[in-house]
């Protein structure tokens, strides 16, 4: 039997006749959605078409040489860089958010100040972070161009992001959970760590995913701090991440094919990281 609550396309068109403004709006929103969608499809499609034929096993050799622009060192550097930056920034970001939401008095002036500072920090162009990292970590602390200088710079860059998203996630945890916990005679520490933080994990992870996106995509801040050498260094050595590597390959126009191939790998990494984090978030939310 035919459903009576559905509207056929023709009857929809008819209804627009009596209401032309609604028709215009309908066309407008459809158009906007299509443009957004097609842009993404075109971009990803273009990179895939250009990049996939150029992915060869040679690109995954351990050593980068001028004959073989291997992306393997950069791939590993990307992972290392992401791990160190997150290791530094995530605990600090989460703990500062816990202070702001759970411990600081509401309406406290210092809290307002910290919030404005964090917001301003997240709006600063990354090259400014790069310059700071260069002057402070590379020059003043004499770390030189190194993975560590890069990671610290990136950590500073993503710190406000993680703090703000964690703050919002904590605020979204209903007060009735806190009341319930206090009402059972639990102290602040236990309430925050056993009840509130676990409930906020999906939101916190969303912030971490955004942060990973920024780390993986960052070039300007790293060129100044971690350098551009395509090798697998120790922490105090210079090494390029995939994005920086891409910049290097394409800036002189000599390795465009390898550059496209690198872009495909970068795309895959981002997709993989996002789905893993999404999976973890779901898993935690279920428990």
């Amino acid at each position: 039997m035919e459903a009576i609550n559905t509207q056929s396309f023709m009857s929809k068109l008819k209804s627009f006749k009596s209401n032309p403004f609604s028709a215009i709006l309908f066309i407008l929103v459809m158009f906007a959605t299509t443009v957004t969608f097609l842009t993404l499809v075109f971009l990803v499609g273009y990179i895939l078409v250009k990049g996939i034929p150029n992915i060869t096993w040679k690109l995954f050799e351990w050593k980068y040489t001028t004959e073989n622009a291997s992306l393997m060192p950069s791939l590993i550097n990307t992972i290392v860089m992401t791990a160190i930056s997150l290791l530094i920034a995530t605990p600090i970001g989460i703990f500062s958010a816990v202070y702001l939401v759970e411990y600081a008095k509401r309406g406290n002036k210092i809290v307002g100040l910290i919030r404005v500072t964090a917001e301003t920090l997240s709006g600063i162009p990354s090259i400014v972070y790069g310059l700071f990292g260069f002057l402070f970590f590379v020059t003043t602390l004499k770390w030189g161009y190194s993975m560590l200088a890069g990671a610290f710079t990136l950590a500073i860059m993503i710190l406000p992001l993680i703090m703000r998203t964690t703050e919002e996630a904590l605020k979204a945890v209903p007060d009735v959970y806190r009341e319930g916990s206090f009402g059972l005679g639990a102290g602040k520490l236990r309430t925050v760590f056993v009840i509130v933080l676990p409930a906020a994990v999906p939101g916190i992870l969303a912030g971490v995913i955004l942060a990973i996106g920024r780390i993986v995509g960052e070039t300007a801040a790293l060129i100044y701090t971690a350098g551009t050498i395509a090798q697998i260094p120790d922490l105090m050595g210079s090494g390029s991440t995939l994005s920086v590597h891409m910049y290097n390959l394409s800036k002189e126009g000599l390795y465009m094919n390898q550059s496209y191939a690198t872009a495909v790998i970068l795309l895959i990494i981002v997709v993989v990281i996002n789905s893993i984090s999404g999976f973890i978030a779901k898993k935690i939310a279920k428990e």
Partner: peptide, 18 residues
């Protein structure tokens, strides 16, 4: 905390932990 252990509370809206 000892007081709240001895004087328990049930709230207006059920608030089981997640």
């Amino acid at each position: 905390n000892m007081l709240r252990k001895r004087v328990g509370m049930v709230f207006q809206k059920p608030n089981p932990f997640p």
